[in-house]
Design a protein around this nucleic acid. Sequence first.
DNA 1: CGACCATTTGATATGGATCAAGCGATGTGG
DNA 2: CCACATCGCTTGATCCATATCAAATGGTCG
Lengths: 224, 224
Amino acid sequence: MLKQFTIERPVRSRPDHIPADGNAFHSSIDAMGAPMYFARNSEIYGETEPAEYVYKIVSGAVRTYNVLDDGRRQIGAFYLSGDIFGLELAGEHTSSAEAITDCKILVVKRSTLVSLADRDNEVARELWEMTAVELQRAQAHIMLLIKTAQERVAGFLLEMAKRSASGRDVELPMSRQDIADYLGLTIETVSRTLTQLEKVAAINIPTSRRITLRNPVALTRLNS
Amino acid sequence: MLKQFTIERPVRSRPDHIPADGNAFHSSIDAMGAPMYFARNSEIYGETEPAEYVYKIVSGAVRTYNVLDDGRRQIGAFYLSGDIFGLELAGEHTSSAEAITDCKILVVKRSTLVSLADRDNEVARELWEMTAVELQRAQAHIMLLIKTAQERVAGFLLEMAKRSASGRDVELPMSRQDIADYLGLTIETVSRTLTQLEKVAAINIPTSRRITLRNPVALTRLNS
DNA sequence: CGACCATTTGATATGGATCAAGCGATGTGG
DNA sequence: CCACATCGCTTGATCCATATCAAATGGTCG
């Protein structure tokens, strides 16, 4: 079930909205979505719950993850403002989702979109496309997981930079533990690798949550 | 481009066809598909090629994979008879595909299916579903890659056994190197882990390409 | 039979995990 | 407003699972 939380602290200073780029899917959600607010670290949905809604982030950041029996956690993806997540073809979520920061999120019933797709081929195609994009993300993630620690961290930074649109300045909403669980490393290895990248002048780390790409070319080279 | 090869040796002894289970997608391919034959280790399509066709295996086995600059190969999936592969939403393949054994494969134009989907909502949904199934497979693969060697191998055997339908008797069409590249391990580690599993009486290895699950419960426990 | 290729087995090396402190920023209660 | 507790992050020392390097074995085909 959806659990709503009140925000105690002001929401993060991300652009409040990314324009719906002539995409029927985004437009639908923007038009029909009901805003909800989730506090930092609160659960948005759990792994076995019925997938009743689709989510679009207005502001904030979200992680989706799976947990093995013994507690190991693998983060499947990070979602930032403008991103859509939580869409399932079948009736059940295959991952859990949590707010990394306080979030404002638009929520639409999955069934609404599906019945819309029955009448509108374009919507149908975009539902498919959304899943296809997720698939590509997952495949890229697999390729990341077979690399060395340095390559994984470099790849992660490049990916975040590309999505940040701020170019070389990356603001990390997530903790080192989140990054570690995304990359399949330990928190210590992530930390060490970052300081090492700083030592070789590939990046700057003014604060732990802010990283500047000083030499993206070198990073790309390190990425494999 | 598609490259066709003649088969020198008899095709593998798998059931020649798995009945199309009332699924419009499978039926369409069965009805419209043109049979093609690929020799062992021949390329079915390459990573950057236009994704013109969708493939359904009648007999044989296929691997899809990606290669990093430095040559590291990651196998994304194994496909067996009855499986469909090669479907892309966009116009380009994101992986390469090769025949593991000599294969008989039904081939249908992607455009045919897509235009069919424009008129038939059920087909549209099944295109989506096909991608969704791939996504789930990829997500399961990610979870596999964060496990220990023993867990990965045990998980792989259980997965193959489930797909074999022969229950506890697994016939492996792929080499140890293929398995290693699928599991993100080296060939030596795969081999050692298998002999170790045999030593603890979890499996039998009558020949290197045939494995019997002697204690599936123990395997499941080892799987994490 | 002999050559080749896949697989197994052995010996050693190493990247990242684990265990253990230390440090710095942030928030809280006195 | 300051002292202290807490939390997230970094750094250091050591260990271990898996990679790497090397060789032996076995199975298949000409």
